[in-house]
């Protein structure tokens, strides 16, 4: 297994955001994490990408409440749950965050280069850049454009492209389709499939369950920080209560 989360619990003060979560992602898979708002999907991604560990460091220093993290996260055979975010990227795990969050004042190219920050070999980052441009031709057309002026869909492509610039083994994407027009959503999903075909493992958090279930081989359903169900899309959809209560379909 490339990624194994075992009995992960995350608590902010008294609020339990993730409760005893166990899941795994194998190399080459596209796995989804679905569930209602506040189910702990984003927190799961933040925990494995090191943002929770980083935030805990900050809170400890400011004594403004504590974050509690228990359980283990193993990536590529190494325990990573206590490692801060900036150290995790170089191990090949990257998060494309919620709400895209491009560096809005910088150009498209600068955003992409920021993604390749750790790659000191300029020739290699040049090569990766060409791959990203091949995947997202629209970014190549807009190299010099300030990213804050891109459309929502383009910003999403940029955010994914920026994450890919770190040459990840595992790409975590948090709600890529939120706030996009239907056509743009389809395009984003098509790109995600294409990335999977490039051999990159993907852990996808999404609201749009119907599309995701077609895309992902396996799906984890979360609610209130707990794992509710796990399986192939069509199996999960057969369960009436699950469909109505947790998937909103």
């Amino acid at each position: 297994m490339l990624l194994e989360i075992s009995h992960l619990t995350v608590r902010y003060e008294k609020a339990v955001l993730i409760n005893d979560l166990t899941l795994s992602v194998d190399t080459g898979e596209l796995v989804s994490l679905v569930g209602p708002n506040g189910a702990g999907k984003s927190t799961t991604l933040r925990a494995i990408s090191g943002l929770v560990a980083w935030e805990r460091e900050i809170k400890r220093r400011s004594t403004s409440g504590d974050i509690f993290l228990d359980g283990t996260v193993t990536f590529d055979g190494e325990r990573i749950e206590a490692i801060p975010a900036h150290e995790i990227v170089r191990r090949g795990l990257v998060l494309c965050p919620e709400r895209r969050r491009p560096f809005r004042e910088m150009t498209v190219l600068e955003n992409l280069l920021a993604g390749a920050y750790l790659q000191k070999d300029k020739r290699k980052s040049r090569e990766t850049l060409e791959k990203v441009y091949a995947l997202f031709p629209v970014l190549k057309e807009r190299t010099r454009q300030i990213s804050g002026t891109l459309s929502g869909g383009e910003q999403q492509m940029l955010a994914i492209g920026r994450a890919l610039m770190s040459e990840p083994q595992l790409l975590c994407i948090d709600e890529p389709s939120t706030g996009l027009a239907p056509i743009m959503r389809q395009e984003v999903f098509a790109k995600i499939e294409e990335i999977k075909r490039l051999g990159i493992t993907i852990l996808l958090v999404e609201q749009e369950v119907s599309t995701v279930f077609k895309l992902a081989a396996r799906n984890y359903v979360l609610s209130s920080g707990k794992l509710i169900a796990h399986g192939r899309g069509e199996e999960l959809l057969k369960d009436e209560t699950l469909r109505k209560t947790y998937l909103g379909m």
Binding site: S49, G50, L51, W54, P84, A85, H86, E87, V89, R90, V94, L95, P97, R101, F103, R104, E105, M106, E110, L113, A114, G115, Y117, L118, R162, A163, S166
Partner: peptide, 24 residues
């Protein structure tokens, strides 16, 4: 420079800069 890029990235969004491997 790469350092300048990291400084600007961190100034704009230190969480995302962190995700890019920039040691804040």
């Amino acid at each position: 420079t790469n350092l300048g890029l990291a400084i600007r990235s961190t100034a704009e969004d230190r969480e995302v800069a962190n995700l890019m491997g920039m040691n804040e």
